[in-house]
Design a protein around this nucleic acid. Structure first.
Lengths: 344, 344
DNA sequence: CAAAAAATCTAAACATATTTAGAAAAACGT
DNA sequence: ACGTTTTTCTAAATATGTTTAGATTTTTTG
């Protein structure tokens, strides 16, 4: 005989009070509604005794608040995102919020469907998203414009928005700068296509600007595009071509961890010893793998924990502001750090 | 002027029908309720036109179903779990369900709080959980016993339950068997303490049984316990001691990827070349890292995708059965595979 | 064509809270 | 003791759907 769930009404009946009163007390508004201490005491203890827990749906339906935050990432199995997810979740749990994580599989349509479902439906109170979208058109929609959304990792340049990102430009600039100081003259950066997402364009810009600062010429050969759908194969081809060409290169700089991993795979497979050839290996994004592999990798590490915490807090702040009417855009850019493993 | 959300009533008013009818049609029950094709057509097209999307909370409140499944794991940033999460999510999305992922931080209290919140509150229709609990006492509670729960990775031996796990015993047995065939006589397994979770005890059992099969003596020295709270330091100490001792060991077998990673860190830090000393390195759990490091690692790989898919399907099946009254326990044990990188 | 049967549709109840507007009780002032 | 405040509490409305029981309308049948 599975005993039915305790309802507000059950408590009210037991105590011979109205459910209004019980609701007020349960929600900690007893004082402000002038419920006597004694009654509050009674209600609270009875509620505990009967193991009352409010029905979230009824509450959300009435209040329009679910205490749920959504997190949308391209791929939850990517350690970059799963780590951020962990920190976001921790930060939210402290404030009594729960997190709904969903992967979009780097698929714009799925992303839009999920945003629609979550945000327009008001299933969640706020959204944190590493968007796969590029145009911003979707997020301009009236109903979304008034919804608390925090972009992380990537933002959409053509719309005003709240975001928390690493300083991709500066990180890339510094990394390139470091390589140059180590004597590199012909650094080849591996980018991914399509590459309109902000983080990548910023990294490219940082790379180019650093070269420019030292008057090192940049030619199309310094930026290799890897097709997203065929990373492994494409990296292998481009890499082999590079190593065979007459113009000697002295550093490979992969613009994200996917490409880095693909390169390492190729080195492994072909037993290539980059180091012996006097080529540095550098990458944006630091993943734990880098601590174990050869060649040693110089990397730009993003402050995952900070990104997570800031994003969570910003989301909560926006939710608050929304209630209070005002709504300003906040842009958080966090510094990266170079992890320079003793190279060559 | 942010246009208000479209409600059922709005559509009903526009078309001069009852909202009952609209609801029926929207839910695809038009035929069974005998709503004429023409009317259904009208409703559907108007709903599309007005961009109607039902309010999930109102619906869930009334029906007691949210189309949400919960996934509770110890640590979403652990690639083992985040990969499973990805596959679970995909499988559920196909069936119109969404996934709420939460990390428990390997904290029993937090786990229980979340289960309470999600399951008892009926926020979710079903739960998939890699439990940190050990006793089963918590899950024996009346209200949870009638809730669709699928355990993954680990199950609780002292309660009847539904679970999807890898064949930890068999995988461990085969791995040990392989090592023995390679000539190992003194294999040392690194376990984690506390180690009452089923997956680990099964792995230990497989290890011992394989030794026994070949009449290889097992002594306490063959099983090193690493304390969970201090993995890195503890591994380092135990490892150094082992390598210095007189009795030569010929294989190290780490019982999960955490310990494996810790070992690799030590090898790295101290520039130890296990291989040169003629020691094999093996580990349960295969993570991508293993493809890149030295020494080459023989590992037991778990079928992550299958675990995810089976867990998702089982959860949905249970939800169905719950509605239909019957409720049987299903235990899915999936085969593992050995990844034998050419060692020594 | 009236009665019976079948096909369509609807009013009202319900799911479980929160909140508003106002009632009842207690305390106070003279 | 009676009107006024103040304190404490409650009935009813509300949030947005789903579902039951029954009402209308249409079609069929003798």
């Amino acid at each position: 005989m599975a005993s039915k769930k305790t309802l507000l009404e059950d408590i009210a009946r037991e105590l011979n009070v109205s459910k209004t009163l019980v609701s007020m007390v349960i929600n900690g508004k007893g004082d402000s509604y002038g419920i006597s201490k004694k009654t509050q005491e009674k209600v609270l203890s009875k509620a505990g005794e009967m193991q009352y827990t409010p029905n979230m749906f009824a509450r959300a339906l009435r209040t329009g608040k679910s205490n749920l935050i959504g997190l949308l990432v391209a791929d939850i199995s990517n350690p970059f995102y799963s780590n951020i997810a962990k920190y976001v979740e921790r930060a939210l749990a402290e404030k009594g919020y729960n997190l709904m994580i969903c992967s979009t599989d780097e698929n714009i349509e799925r992303e839009e469907k999920l945003v629609q479902l979550f945000a327009e439906q008001q299933i969640i109170d706020g959204l944190i998203v590493a968007t796969t979208n590029t145009s911003g058109g979707f997020f301009k929609k009236e109903r979304l414009r008034n919804f608390p959304i925090v972009f992380i990792d990537r933002y959409l340049p053509d719309i005003e928005s709240n975001y928390v990102v690493a300083d991709n430009y500066q990180g890339s600039f510094e990394l390139t700068d470091l390589l140059i100081h180590k004597g590199c003259k012909n650094i080849v950066a591996f980018n991914i296509t399509p590459s309109h997402i902000s983080s990548l364009t910023e990294r490219v810009r940082g790379f180019k600007d650093a070269l420019h600062k030292y008057n090192i010429p940049f030619s199309s050969g310094n930026l290799v595009e890897i097709s997203f759908n065929n990373i492994q194969q494409d990296v292998k081809e481009k890499l082999l071509k590079l190593l065979k060409q007459s113009a000697k290169i002295d550093a490979i700089y992969t613009l994200n961890n996917h490409i880095a991993t693909a390169c390492l795979n190729v080195f492994n497979e072909l037993a290539l010893d980059i180091k012996k050839e006097g080529i540095y290996f550098a990458s944006f994004d630091d993943i734990s793998l880098f601590d174990f592999v050869k060649p040693n990798i110089i990397s730009v590490s993003q402050p995952l924990e900070q990104i997570g915490i800031e994003a969570a807090n910003l989301a909560l702040k926006l939710i608050d502001q929304k209630v209070n009417g005002t709504m300003e855009y906040e842009k958080v850019v966090l510094p990266t750090s170079i992890i320079s493993r003793n190279q060559i």
